[in-house]
């Protein structure tokens, strides 16, 4: 319609969605910072015996970043019409995403066992809500990816028709890129 239209509707739509996602996390991170600044000691003294699993989560972080890179390779593959590679890369990405969730889940189970629950003051509360909100996003991205894998297996993509992969890649990389920020804020700082 207009002479220049650099982005397709779907791609633009996803980018706009990311704006909203960002603000959702801005709200939650803002809450986190308010609690963080409001408490002289962090974690508060009452839950001092609990250490967040920094190392395992650090490894998990690396896993997630790798998955982002592989997702990018998948996009490159479909752009160059390497459909078989596309499938492999997508499946690999999805597996890493699932692995991330599984590790996170087991960490949560351990933390809850140690006594850090949603009710453990704002420290526990915001930890589970913020990290959980990101986990829900990863889960959403994995489901989206599963649909894309299905479509890839059905042969729906080619070097001229890959919007489905592209939008999913944008979302995946967004979710991946968000994680290190949360990791540094919640686990390290």
């Amino acid at each position: 319609m207009t002479e220049s239209r650099p982005l397709s509707n779907a791609k633009l739509g996803v980018l706009i969605l990311l704006g909203a996602e960002t603000m959702l996390f801005v709200g939650l991170i803002g809450a986190f910072l308010v609690f963080r600044m409001g408490n002289v000691t962090w974690p508060p003294l009452s839950i001092d015996n609990i250490q967040l699993p920094r190392l395992v989560t650090g490894i998990n972080t690396v896993l997630l970043i790798i998955s982002g890179y592989i997702m990018f390779l998948a996009l490159r593959a479909v752009q160059q019409d390497r459909i078989k590679q596309l499938r492999n890369f997508l499946v690999f990405t999805g597996t890493l995403g699932l692995l991330f969730l599984v590790v996170q889940g087991s960490e949560w189970v351990q933390l809850i066992g140690k006594g850090l629950t949603l009710q453990s003051g704002v420290y526990g509360g915001i930890f589970y809500v913020l990290i959980g909100c990101h986990a829900v996003h990863v889960l959403g991205a994995v489901i989206w990816l599963a649909i894309v894998i299905g479509m890839a297996i059905a042969g729906r993509f080619s070097s001229v028709n890959f919007t489905g992969v592209e939008t999913c890649t944008i979302y995946w990389i967004y979710v991946v890129a968000l994680w290190p920020i949360l990791y540094v804020l919640v686990y390290l700082a």
Binding site: I16, A20, E21, M23, L24, V26, G27, A31
Partner: peptide, 11 residues
């Protein structure tokens, strides 16, 4: 709306 509403949603 896009940028403001998610903040309310988080609250």
């Amino acid at each position: 709306l896009l940028l403001a509403f998610p903040v309310l949603s988080s609250a």
